[in-house]
Every structure is written in C-alpha cells, then in structure tokens.
C-alpha cells in the first residue's frame, strides 16, 4: 500500500506525459501540437517538484523553529524552466502565425499537400 501511494505521483506524471505525447503525434493541427508539448512540459515540472518533496517538510523559506525544508534545488530549476518554456512557446506560436500567413492553414497535412504540389526547389531539382 505504502509502495503504491509512494509511486502514485510518478505513475500519474507518466500518464500525463504520454497524453501530451499522444496529442503531439495524433493531432495534425500545429497549435494543438504546441499545447501537447506544453502538457508534456508541465508533467516534467511536476516530476521534478515531486522529487524535491519531503514528507512533513516545509517550503524552503527559513523560519524559526523549523528544521526540515523541502529540497530547494528542483524549485530553482523549474522556476527558470517555466519562464523559458513560455518564451519558447511564444516563438513557436509566432512561427505558426507566419506559417498560417504563408500557407493559409495551420494543419500539417494540408501544408504537406501544398508543399508537394508546388515546391519550387523540388521542381528545379527534377529538371536539372
């Protein structure tokens, strides 16, 4: 019982991670793929924070009469990772907006079709 409860968080994190991965693979919409990546990312954050937790510990802010603090190191890593995550997400969204403006679609399959039908470089390569 103790073993199951102790590993419960890890199992759920992996389930979340795989759901994120499934969104990335199964959906062909680029924005939905980005949401899938974000879900994956957050599940990794949860994994790290779970590592840092000590049962009966306190948040890593020094207070009188407290000896046990949870591990501050994962918190620092994840804090910066969250902000960097939003920065990369914004770059990804900007790329998607430009793709939509160039192709008229945010659907990966549509974009591939358009590319196959009139690809300037492919045509050039076949003639020379």
């Amino acid at each position: 019982m103790n073993e199951i409860l102790g590993h419960f968080n890890y199992g759920i994190v992996i389930l979340l991670m795989m759901m994120g991965l499934y969104i990335v693979i199964a959906s062909s919409n680029l924005i939905k793929k980005l949401i899938g990546i974000s879900v994956f990312q957050v599940s990794v954050f949860i994994l790290y924070i779970t590592f840092g937790k000590i049962t009966g510990g306190n948040p890593p802010i020094i207070v009188d009469n407290v000896d046990v603090y949870s591990n501050p190191l994962p918190h620092v890593l994840i804090l910066t990772a969250i902000v960097v995550g939003v920065a990369t997400t914004s770059v990804g969204l900007a790329l998607i907006v430009r793709i939509r403006e160039a192709y008229g679609s945010t659907d990966e399959d549509d974009i591939n079709d358009i590319d196959k039908n009139d690809n300037f470089y492919l045509k050039n390569r076949s003639t020379t």
């Binding site: 957050v42 954050f45 949860i46 924070i49 779970t50 840092g52 937790k53 000590i54 510990g57 306190n58 948040p59 890593p60 802010i61 949870s70 994962p74 918190h75 994840i78 804090l79 969250i82 902000v83 995550g85 939003v86």
Partner: peptide, 16 residues
C-alpha cells in the same frame, strides 16, 4: 506545486 511545498514555482506557474 503549492501542495508539494514549492511556493515560488506555484507563483511562477500561475502568473506565467
């Protein structure tokens, strides 16, 4: 994150 003692991370995640 709050429940797992990571106060700063919860703060960042909520804002960002």
């Amino acid at each position: 994150f709050l429940d797992l003692d990571a106060v700063d991370v919860a703060f960042t995640e909520a804002a960002v």
